[in-house]
């Protein structure tokens, strides 16, 4: 039995910022470090985590059947083919709406805690019941946002709710960073976002076309394309979660040459 299981909520408020992709890649990265990890898809209305992990055809039962004692937990857990430390548990079936309550979520997470080092909860978008259920079972949280006004605004709402529910620590992942646009000051900078949201930065993830390829295949980047820019970022985030001191990538240094030097000069703060 794992005694000090970490239960981490992965949330964002706004949809489409990369929660599920982060959950899948973080799950794989932690599992690769030898840590038993369960990823729980709390978004049973529109579930996608199974698809990103390539496990969509292997789901037989969900957490709902476990809670109703129609099956055992290990029958509902879907073990990843290549990474046996990683298991997926869907919260429910898309056809069964509104059955899940905060207490159900707590019960299922308590069961998972007995077997796993990490439980990552992929939270549905929004700040309504789906989010509240997922939050009820969580100890700490990772807020994912993009350097865009709407994503940052929604993240701020979520952070307010996490704070009032005493979830801590709450850390930030800044996703879909485009170094060139940031250097041209046509995208909110890392400091802009961390200053506004007042959260410690767990990591940033560079925009990477390979993400689309990986979702097409149902193979997270951290599984087979570990050298792609985004995969490196995800691996770093997993290491930092484990307490390793990995320096952040400086997006301005990602682009090199005269152009990059000039853009850096233009970013000099005068006052």
């Amino acid at each position: 039995m794992a005694t000090d299981t970490r239960v981490i909520l992965i949330c964002s408020g706004k949809g489409g910022v990369g929660k599920t992709t982060l959950t899948a890649n973080l799950g794989i990265s932690l599992a690769r470090q030898g840590l038993t990890t369960a990823v729980l898809d709390a978004d049973f209305g529109l579930r996608n985590l199974d698809l990103l992990l390539g496990l969509e055809n292997r789901i037989v039962y969900t957490a709902q059947e476990v809670l109703e004692e129609e099956c055992r937990l290990d029958q509902a857990l879907v073990k990843h083919k290549q990474e046996s430390n990683l298991s997926l548990l869907p919260a429910g079936n898309p056809r069964m709406l509104d059955w899940l309550k905060p207490d159900d979520m707590k019960r299922i997470v308590d069961m998972l805690k007995e077997q796993f080092n990490y439980v990552l909860i992929d939270c549905p978008a929004g700040v309504e019941d789906g989010f509240k259920n997922a939050m009820a079972a969580s100890q700490e949280a990772i807020v994912v946002t993009n350097p865009e006004v709407s994503a940052v605004r929604d993240a701020d709402r979520v952070i307010g709710l996490l704070n009032t529910n005493s979830i801590k620590p709450v850390q930030l992942v800044l996703n879909r960073v485009r170094p060139k646009m940031m250097a041209n000051q046509e995208m909110l900078s890392i400091n802009d976002v961390t200053d506004i949201l007042a959260l410690p930065l767990l990591g940033l993830v560079l925009e990477d076309e390979q993400i689309i390829v990986s979702t097409n295949r149902g193979e997270p980047l951290t599984l087979n394309s570990v050298n792609s820019p985004a995969a490196k970022c995800y691996l770093n985030i997993a290491k930092r979660l484990q307490g390793e001191d990995i320096p952040l990538i400086d997006p301005l240094k990602e682009s090199s040459g005269f152009g990059a030097k000039f853009r850096r000069l233009m970013q000099t703060k005068i006052f």
Binding site: V149, R153, E186, L188, D192
Partner: peptide, 19 residues
């Protein structure tokens, strides 16, 4: 001005109201 500073100012204003 580059759009990042506009974004920053708009966000600060809207968040002050949201919060």
């Amino acid at each position: 001005p580059a759009s990042a500073s506009t974004a920053r100012e708009r966000l600060q204003l809207v968040l002050a109201h949201d919060r």
